[in-house]
Design a binder for these strands. Structure first.
Length: 102
DNA sequence: TTATTGACACCTT
DNA sequence: TAAGGTGCCAATA
């Protein structure tokens, strides 16, 4: 049950194309569990660093990173996305342009 | 078992 | 675009 959802989430995140981002709700929905955004976040939290999953491509519905600005993780995620061509404006991403399957 | 918390989303203003 | 309030589910204390 849970493991299956986790597996789906992992698979979906791994399926996010280069230079694209997805929201928590979108991930949850694609995993077959709408409104499970929070669980998605929990899974990402427990995501081992061994996994090569592009967790940094997962952002919230506002197109923003869920970390406080200036934190190492925030900067790391932002840098990674920018490296893929994702444009940030005021610590925000143009979901209209970069959201996966939009 | 109830209350609290969390890398949140969605709707309304 | 920003801000506030509401709903959702699971893990933890």
């Amino acid at each position: 049950m849970q493991d299956d959802f986790e597996l789906r989430v992992h698979t979906i995140i791994g399926a996010i194309p280069f230079g694209r981002v997805a929201t928590y709700g979108q991930i949850a929905k694609l995993a077959g569990q709408a409104n499970y955004a929070r669980k998605v976040g929990y899974i990402l939290k427990s995501l081992p660093k061994e996994s090569n999953l592009p967790w940094y491509r997962v952002i919230n519905s506002q197109g923003k990173i869920s970390f406080p600005a200036q934190t190492s993780k925030f900067i790391e995620q932002k840098e990674r996305l920018e490296s893929e061509g994702v444009i940030f404006l005021s610590n925000r991403v143009r979901l209209k342009e970069f959201q996966w399957l939009d």
